[in-house]
């Protein structure tokens, strides 16, 4: 994507999100600050800053409000995960950070299919994009260890229109490293 070249990883994510939402127009993003937070200038309006803010805006623009959660509870969970995504999964992550993130997520996903339990939401999309570079470096043993994360990730990457040009990560269940 030529537009995304030179932008921060979060702006690239937003380009991916636009496509998966079916927005064809293609917004232009700027970056701001040390962390290269994306900035979106809206026609005749104020500019939006930050991954979660712009992502929410895009979802509304695409008229797919259900991705923000249907019930009040779901909406809250989605917002919570967007916040987690922006604050916790930011580049660069140390090995220790990754371990903690995966451990927490693994525990959280044990009894859930999607982050907001039974519905696919924006939280799943952005967490998938954010975790892709982490999951891709995991060993087979680690994927097995964070089984719930693997299952969720594999599920999301097969969700139509989400993965796009990102590489498909292979998960296999070989039960070599069962630690249950």
């Amino acid at each position: 994507m030529a537009v995304a070249a030179g932008l921060g990883p979060e702006a690239e994510e937003l380009v991916l999100l636009e496509k998966s939402l079916g927005l064809t127009k293609g917004n232009k993003y700027g970056v701001q600050g040390e962390r290269k937070s994306p900035v979106l200038q809206i026609n005749n309006g104020p500019s939006l800053t930050g991954l979660a803010t712009i992502a929410t805006h895009l979802v509304k623009q695409a008229k797919k409000e259900q991705l923000l959660g249907k019930t009040a509870e779901e909406k809250a969970v989605v917002q919570q995960w967007l916040e987690y995504r922006v604050t916790q999964i930011a580049l660069p992550c140390t090995k220790e950070d990754t371990r903690v993130i995966l451990k927490d997520l693994n525990l959280y996903l044990e009894d859930k299919v999607y982050l907001a339990r039974n519905n696919f939401t924006l939280a799943d999309i952005l967490m998938y994009y954010g975790l892709h570079h982490i999951i891709i470096d995991l060993t087979v043993q680690e994927k097995e260890k964070y089984l719930n994360v693997s299952r969720w990730f594999n599920h999301i990457q097969h969700y139509p229109g989400i993965r796009q040009h990102l590489s498909s990560i292979i998960f296999m269940k070989n039960r070599l490293f069962t630690n249950a």
Binding site: V113, L147, W152, N154, H155, H158, Y159, F171
Partner: peptide, 10 residues
């Protein structure tokens, strides 16, 4: 179901 969300497919 340990590594699957559904019985078949996604």
């Amino acid at each position: 179901l340990a590594d699957k969300s559904y019985i078949e497919g996604y």
